[in-house]
Design a protein around this nucleic acid. Structure first.
Lengths: 130, 130
DNA sequence: TGCTATACATACATATTTGTATGTATAGTA
DNA sequence: TACTATACATACAAATATGTATGTATAGCA
């Protein structure tokens, strides 16, 4: 990623690592990480996910799961019973992504207090009052 | 992150690692990564950033830089000359975050073709046609 | 017969993010 | 005098993401 030279002719920096942008789009939305997190522990049913995540609307849970499935990160297993039963679990690919998320989580644990401190001092300085 | 037990009483999974959510909010927007990436190479002036990123609007560049500054990831140095000159660079904190982004980038380089393959097979299967 | 449980779909409303167009300031230069 | 370069600010419009409310299907049970 960070070995780069001049770039006079190209249009967009992210052309250089096109997948990073798409990967960020993958994980950046409001619910993906929560779902991946819960599934990292175990297979879950739809209703279990909803209860454990807590404040996710059912529309968003469905959309998030569909996206994750389409992207090969989560697999869906339907049991033909009544009432319906569907189990979700991480794919091997999903598990590798979870590893990376763990690194991000570690960074945030170690460094986020610095971010908060920066915010405080910024918001308290004279120049940045509104 | 991923060592967890039962969670019958809490509301939201992400309460368990509150900073992850906020860190994701930090980096998840459309332009932050591009800016961090360009600055990882060197200090840049406002106009240089704009040219190198390419398709960012000036409003978004300004907002992104202000956010990054507020969060302590980027520092801003103003030279009192006419026409104005302002230099942006990464803070030490910003550099550590860039490390993590690099891991994400590595993941995407290694694995994103799997994601694309999953998408193709998903979109081509009978069940998922619209 | 009517009600329950489960896993959704869908129309519509609202909120948040991003983009576009235009304006501001000032020293130097033609 | 008018025009340039640079780094913004701001009002407004458009696009995208998210939430809410309601509907669907079916076996079993009271």
């Amino acid at each position: 990623m960070y070995s780069i030279l001049t770039m006079s002719t190209k249009k967009n920096v992210l052309d250089l690592h096109p997948y990073l942008r798409q990967t960020l789009d993958l994980i950046a939305d409001k619910w993906v990480v929560a779902v991946l997190y819960v599934l990292s522990q175990n297979t879950r049913r739809y209703g279990e996910l909803q209860r454990e995540i807590g404040d996710i609307s059912q529309r968003m849970l469905t959309r998030t799961l569909r996206d994750l499935e389409r992207n090969g990160l989560v697999s869906r297993k339907v049991y033909l019973v009544v009432p319906p039963m569907v189990e979700y679990s991480l794919t091997p690919l999903g598990k590798t992504l979870n590893q990376v998320l763990k690194e991000l989580c570690d960074w945030s644990t170690e460094n986020f207090h610095d971010v908060e401190a920066a915010r405080l001092s910024h918001d308290n300085s004279e120049q940045n009052r509104s």
